[in-house]
Amino acid sequence: MVDQVATLPSSREFNPWPVGIFICLLVLACLFLAPTIGVMLSSIKTTREIAEGGLWDIPTRLFLGNFVEVLANPAVHRYFLNTFLVTVPATAASIALGVLAGYVFSKLPFWGSNLLFLVLISGMFFPPQVILIPLFQFFNSLGLIDTLWPIIFIHTALGIPICTLLMRNFFATVPNSLREAAILEGANEFQVLTRVALPLSLPALAVLATLQFTWIWNDFLWPLIFTQSDEKRTIMVGIVNLKGQYSVAWGVQGALSLVASLPTLIVFLFFQRYFIKGMTMGAVKG
């Protein structure tokens, strides 16, 4: 007891480390947030205000003309629709294939399955620039340039490795006895997957749905390569396209950027509860 009392004052001494770390994190947070704040500020200013060099000034009045212009623009509606037409099927298809492959790798291993799994996962490590030209030639030969199909196919294919990896690891945590119990009750493998394994894997599915949706929605490269006409553009390419002929329409682009990021934000908020659970899964067996 005496020792504890004696050491008490020293524990109250000023410790500079937490303060230093806090300042570093604050600076980093500001650096990361600066572009977003810049976009937000520019979206509520007129082109004249921005052109006068006041990009970072706090606006004296709220100008919503940029949002009105963006939301009333039929081309923007088309961009949104195209992005949905790419993102939703590609997200669903990559997750569905990842679930099937992950289940087989985790619960129904066969001779050479570990090697095959590694080959599949290695797909994650190819930079897109390496496969860009062959893919362009391939889809060109199929006559699919300036359609949304190549983007859907590519995103589905590129999503398979990460979806398979995550689902395999998650299914591995589902006890084998549950599968065996279901089989004894008369379930076939597909029923084991749909009635037992998948309902237990909602956190993993939520993580994948959020990640895949965000990646595909925000993708710029593949739509840029495979679409040419304005009718086929997705939202990220569309933002660039909104710049004026002789000057950059910062305000309009800023407004569209904010509107364009809303769906991913909504998806994240929708799955947030599962997402956090999924990110920490495996840390503690619940």
Binding site: P175, S177, E180, A181, A182, G186, R195
Partner: peptide, 28 residues
């Protein structure tokens, strides 16, 4: 296994965690 008309009680119980007791019993 399902055609053999046997039932097994597992050491770990192997109850389906996402189903209620009634759904677990009536699963088969």
């Amino acid at each position: 296994p399902s055609k053999r008309e046997v039932a097994m009680v597992f050491q770990s119980y192997a109850l389906f965690p996402h189903l209620t007791v009634a759904e677990n019993i009536g699963f088969g």
